[in-house]
Structures are given as structure tokens and as C-alpha cells.
């Protein structure tokens, strides 16, 4: 079995934490449009890592007072807009929010699912998790209520996206999806509409 420690890699650094709370943190990406996919698993910091699931990606103006304006009327395609306006990379920013779902235990080999005693610090580096790490994290799905607790129906899409990514990290993705589906069915036994929606997008 892969432990958390030996699946961790620090190569794909995405950005830094710019806003943080017990349940979620916001990351500003180093690159415009450099956010991971919705539902991706990310990890903060090196000293006291915290895992989060990407739940919302926002790209907006660097300065809240200056709204972007339309610039492409005379351009042939969208890419040309960016080529003609190289300053856009500096004027726009991509942020994403992640729901905190767990952290490594004190020994560093196992995983604690749930909220850490302290949220990640501001400027903590945020890394994307590689498939082995995702697979190790998704061994246990007891963190799903934290993600499901977000506002429906977006939260449901986040869960489905996470599970699809985790499934593709597994050799037997069908078996994983079946296990995950049953777990969700238990959690949402009182809300079959949500359950149906999630199961529907799990297949997709």
C-alpha cells in the first residue's frame, strides 16, 4: 500500500494560500489560468500539510476596482487578444478555493480525515497531488460529508469530479466507483435526488 509519505512529491507547485479558515482555503495561482481541475486534490505546505479538494476556481482582475474590458473586437481569435495585450497576465489573477478534507497523521504515514486543528498559513505553498497520492488519500472516503456539505448542486459536481479523478488513479476504477457510490448512497439515503445526480455524473 502506498503511504502518504512516499507518494508525496513537491514538483508541481501551483500557488500560495492567500486566504484561510478552518474549513477552506483560497489559493492564488502563479500562472493565469493555472488552477487545477475542479475536484482535484491539492496539498499545502511542507511542515504541516493540509489536503483540500478544489471546489471553486475564480479568475478576476488583480485590482478589484478595475474591471476587465472587452479588447478583442478587431482580433481574429481569442488567443490573439492575449498576444496583443501581454500586460493581461499581470492584470488578471486566477484563484481557487479548496475544501479542507484531511491531513497526514503525526507519524506521517497515515491520514486523518477531517479538519486540522490549525488551518494552513497564508503564503503556504500549494501543490497538486499526483495520482499515487490521490489513490492513497482516497482509500477511505469518510471525508465526503465535508465536501457534500457545500451548496448543492455545485458540491455534488465537485464530489463527482473528485471521484472520477480518484477512479482514474485506480487500476480497477469500476470497483472504486462502486465502493464510492455505495458510500454516497448511505450518506444521501434521505436525499435521493442529489444521490441520483451524483451517480449520474459519476458515470459521465
Amino acid at each position: 500500500m502506498n503511504t502518504i509519505a512516499n507518494t508525496t512529491n513537491y514538483t508541481t507547485r501551483l500557488g500560495e494560500v492567500v486566504e484561510t479558515s478552518s474549513a477552506a482555503f483560497t489559493v492564488q495561482c502563479y500562472d493565469l489560468y493555472g488552477a487545477p481541475a475542479l475536484g482535484a486534490l491539492v496539498r499545502t505546505g511542507r511542515d504541516s500539510p493540509v489536503y483540500g479538494v478544489v471546489r471553486n476556481v475564480v479568475t478576476s482582475s488583480m485590482d478589484p476596482g478595475r474591471r476587465p474590458v472587452a479588447r478583442g473586437q478587431d482580433e481574429a481569435d481569442e488567443e490573439a487578444v492575449y498576444r496583443s495585450n501581454p500586460q493581461l497576465d499581470k492584470l488578471l489573477r486566477t484563484d481557487f478555493q479548496a475544501t479542507i478534507v484531511g491531513y497526514p497523521d503525526s507519524v506521517g504515514t497515515g491520514m486523518r480525515y477531517g479538519l486540522p486543528s490549525q488551518p494552513p498559513r497564508i503564503h503556504a505553498f500549494v501543490h497538486a497531488c499526483a495520482p499515487p497520492e490521490v489513490r492513497a488519500f482516497a482509500e477511505d472516503l469518510r471525508f465526503l460529508p465535508l465536501v457534500l456539505a457545500g451548496a448543492a448542486p455545485e458540491a455534488d459536481e465537485v464530489v463527482a469530479a473528485f471521484l472520477r479523478q480518484a477512479a482514474s488513479a485506480h487500476d480497477d476504477s469500476q470497483a472504486f466507483l462502486m465502493k464510492a457510490g455505495r458510500q454516497i448512497a448511505r450518506l444521501l439515503s434521505r436525499d435521493l435526488q442529489r444521490l441520483n445526480a451524483i451517480l449520474g455524473s459519476l458515470r459521465a
Partner: peptide, 26 residues
């Protein structure tokens, strides 16, 4: 059924995945 709406709006049972997830849980 854990939820009474299952009787009114049964899940898409033609999908084997949905059917097997639901049976034994919901």
C-alpha cells in the same frame, strides 16, 4: 427504501451501475 421518494421516482435502473449502487444501500 431509505427515502420515500424512491417509490415515486425510482432511479434509472437500466443503468447497472446505479442499480447496483442503490441495491443494498438506499
Amino acid at each position: 427504501a431509505s427515502d420515500s421518494s424512491l417509490r415515486a421516482v425510482p432511479p434509472d435502473a437500466s443503468d447497472p451501475f446505479v442499480a447496483s449502487v442503490m441495491s443494498g444501500t438506499g
